[in-house]
Simulated assay, not measured.
Amino acid sequence: MDVPAAKPGMLIHGVLPYEPAAGEDYMSDEQYTHFRRILNAWRQELVAEADRTMNNMKDEVINLPDPADRATQEEEFALELRTRDRERKLLKKIERSLVKIDEGEYGYCEACGIEIGIRRLEARPTAELCIDCKELAEIKEKQMAG
């Protein structure tokens, strides 16, 4: 499960990838500011999308006489609501990540305590595990399911 390296100019929720200065400490104030920007921008995107969905659903609610049309509309609404539910859970993870930044604990693996890494955090800003611990957790999960 390799984390792709950020390409120069590739925006992460509207924010350029971070380029640490030579000798810069991991999770410096500048890095915390960088990830706070990413997480806040991502949160704003999700909230705006939820608002759009609610407005669209209000606008689209029509009492359709045809049962097939009504069923199609209900299925579309159900799909939208499932998507919004996943995003609601993601918002909680974003909030948790922002709290970790405030507490100075962001960027470190919850299982083993090592650095998660800037590129992994840019790829998945809510990551709580380093790559090795994440892979181990996925292997255990597969074994439990199998």
Rank of each mutant, 00 (worst) to 15 (best):
P4W: 01
L11F: 09
G23L: 02
E24Q: 08
E24S: 00
D25E: 10
S28M: 11
Y32Q: 15
R37H: 09
R37V: 14
A41K: 12
W42G: 05
Q44S: 05
E45A: 08
E45Y: 08
A50I: 05
N55S: 13
M57K: 12
K58Q: 10
E60V: 01
N63S: 02
A68P: 07
A68Y: 11
E76T: 03
L79P: 04
E80T: 13
L81W: 06
E87Q: 10
E87V: 13
K89R: 14
I94V: 08
I94H: 00
S97P: 12
S97Y: 06
V99Q: 02
D102W: 04
E103R: 06
E103F: 13
E105V: 07
C109S: 11
C109I: 04
A111R: 11
C112H: 07
C112W: 00
G113M: 00
I114D: 11
I114S: 14
E115I: 15
I116Q: 13
I118S: 00
I118G: 05
R119A: 08
R120E: 04
E122I: 06
A123C: 09
R124H: 15
P125V: 04
C130T: 03
A137T: 06
I139Q: 08
K142M: 15
Q143M: 12
Q143E: 07
G146C: 08
